[in-house]
Design a binder for these strands. Structure first.
Lengths: 217, 217
DNA sequence: AATATATTTTAGACTAGACTAAAAATATAT
DNA sequence: ATATATTTTTAGTCTAGTCTAAAATATATT
């Protein structure tokens, strides 16, 4: 049995270390999970005992095949529930995270499979993140950060790499949503801000915001 | 904040003591919850401290108004999720209990309200149990235990008072479902079994089974 | 009413998970 | 190469929730 807490650690390691393949420091995990490095050390030993993680003192943590699969399935559940909340229960994309964070731990294979089918086997969640399949595999959309696009080029917003309430509310307020066509008009060297053009208007976005927007060309 | 464990205790007290209005013994709670009386004593003190239960040593537990509402909302969630699982995700009524037991603890007011609306504000779960409204109120269907019905009379199966896997599987196997018309043919004094007639056939049900079937006349 | 039986509570111990502070190891800078 | 700073681990403590065994109280029986 994998506990709720263990699932959260696996998820953090998965996210921080390229699906858990690259060694992650206990400190990094602690920060991600908002706990302390000492707590992480304890837990990581437990995960290693259960054959879910590889841990060498002072050298960080990776996931075993088993650990990677569990993490992927938790993420699969998280993202499927997000789709459910937005598409069926009228949640906005800035409201789903906390609830999905709880729902991702519900244990029932049938539930996940049926939910997936009920939603029409979606491939991406409301933020553009890919949904792993039953075997934990997924193919990320090919996308580029908006800062890497040349002046005058345009693309479609397919991914936002920040699910914080405040960031998503900012996008809502400014009428930016997945699927929008966006053209890069100008780059301002002084503060690294960007002028972009959407279907309704031109606007300036800060570098901070731009970092989180990914377009498909 | 009410913990998952606390919610389970509140639910048990609610079920055992007529919505928590009648004093329930720590032993009864322990049995219901599959724990030990000593654990219950500890928890019940905590609930009393939080103003969710009234507890007098050696005299059992009742719920406060606050405790009763929380219990009713947990039950509301449980039953709404059961409806969701059966109606939207192809679960059978014998498969829903364990999953609903997990889902009932998800915390989000919006989630419950939206789920309720999404399901068309159902009044009863797949076992015929009433679903409390936002304020924790509900009106049970008027129903009578099948053992109290006179020979020759008939009614519609509206409630089964046992959600165990084995009982529900028994009903499935024998083609008994909510909404079925059932006529009482005979009562056997020797073993207190019952001969009943459904649309397809006559059959004998044990007293044990009969105890759990409720009809509306 | 006195005693036996059953129920309930208390006391003390355990586990999972987390934390702080100190110690150990590693990395960085002179 | 050594001193300093940073990171990581260890040791010891805490809380929530549970348990067993013993003590206290209530109930039942004569």
């Amino acid at each position: 049995m994998v506990t709720l807490s263990e699932e959260n650690y696996l998820k953090a390691i998965y996210h921080l270390g390229k699906q858990g393949s690259v060694a992650v420091s206990t400190n990094a995990i602690a920060e991600k999970i908002k706990s302390k490095a000492s707590s992480v050390t304890d837990m990581v030993k437990k995960l290693a005992d259960k054959n879910l993680a590889n841990y060498v003192k002072y050298q960080g943590v990776t996931l075993t095949e088993k650990g990677r699969l569990i993490a992927a399935l938790v993420i699969r559940k998280h993202r499927l529930w997000e789709v459910f909340l937005v598409e069926k229960l009228n949640f906005t994309w800035d409201e789903v995270h906390d609830v999905a964070e709880q729902l991702e731990h519900i244990k029932s294979l049938k539930l996940v499979d049926e939910l997936d089918a009920f939603l029409g086997c979606p491939t991406h969640d409301p933020h553009g993140d890919p949904i792993p399949d039953k075997d934990g595999n997924y193919s990320p959309i090919k996308s580029v950060n908006i800062l890497e696009i040349k002046k005058g080029e345009q693309g479609v917003l397919v991914l936002v790499k920040n699910s914080s309430d405040s960031f998503l509310k900012y996008l809502n307020k400014n009428n930016l949503a997945l699927g929008d066509a966006i053209k890069v008009i100008d780059f301002e060297p002084f503060d690294k801000s960007l002028t972009i053009e959407t279907s309704d208007r031109k606007m300036i976005i800060s570098n901070e915001v731009a970092k989180n927007l990914y377009l498909s060309l």
